[in-house]
């Protein structure tokens, strides 16, 4: 009866049976087989537990990423409104001072809201062109200032190099002899 079973099963059975007529070799083989099975099972279990733990950590990280993406996506949808305000302001020089002041306050509110979301307005003041913060949209040859100086901002940027919502679109100088 025992002979008909495959080796593994026999090995396991031997452990539970009367061992008097079993040779020491067979017992050793049985012990080795059980030990091997146990090792495999333990290895799988550890892997499964590790997989689960890694999944948990990855999910935590991914939730952060998804939040960040969604925040960026939402903030981006409002950028045209900020741009529109800027353009309106640039045409509003002859407006009544009260109205103009009010519009400027709204513009400041918009920038504040974006800063609160983690996207501060990129300050240009005298900065040199930096592709981490700026996007060159136009180039002017000008020998009177150092090359790569920013002459103008055509569209404001928001964010930091690590968390960029939109780089500032800028007009940059180039040495006349370049090209």
């Amino acid at each position: 009866m025992v002979e008909e079973q495959n080796e593994d099963t026999r090995a396991v059975d031997l452990l539970n049976d009367d061992l008097t007529d079993v040779s020491p070799e067979e017992i050793r083989a049985a012990q080795a087989a059980v030990a091997a099975q146990l090792e495999t099972a333990e290895d799988r279990w550890r892997r499964a537990a590790a997989d689960y733990d890694n999944l948990r950590k990855r999910m935590a990280r991914e939730i952060q990423t998804v939040r960040e993406q969604e925040r960026r996506h939402t903030a981006k949808a409002f950028l045209p409104v900020v741009d529109g305000l800027d353009r309106a302001l640039s045409f509003g020089v002859d407006l009544d001072e009260g109205v103009l002041g009010g519009m400027q306050a709204i513009r400041a509110q918009a920038a504040d809201a974006l800063r609160a979301l983690g996207y501060p307005e990129i300050v240009i003041d005298g900065a040199e062109f930096d592709p981490q913060l700026h996007e060159a949209v136009s180039v002017v040859e000008d020998a009177s200032v150092p090359p790569r100086s920013i002459l103008a901002v055509t569209r404001p940027g928001f964010g930091t190099p690590e968390r960029m919502l939109r780089p500032a679109a800028v007009v940059v100088t180039r040495r006349p002899d370049e090209e």
């Binding site: 592709p131 981490q132 996007e135 060159a136 949209v137 136009s138 180039v139 790569r148 780089p167 940059v172």
Partner: peptide, 16 residues
């Protein structure tokens, strides 16, 4: 050396 989005942002400044 810049790669990707950063390279694209400065492309008109540095076409060559």
């Amino acid at each position: 050396r810049l790669v990707g989005q950063l390279a694209r942002r400065q492309s008109i400044l540095n076409p060559k």
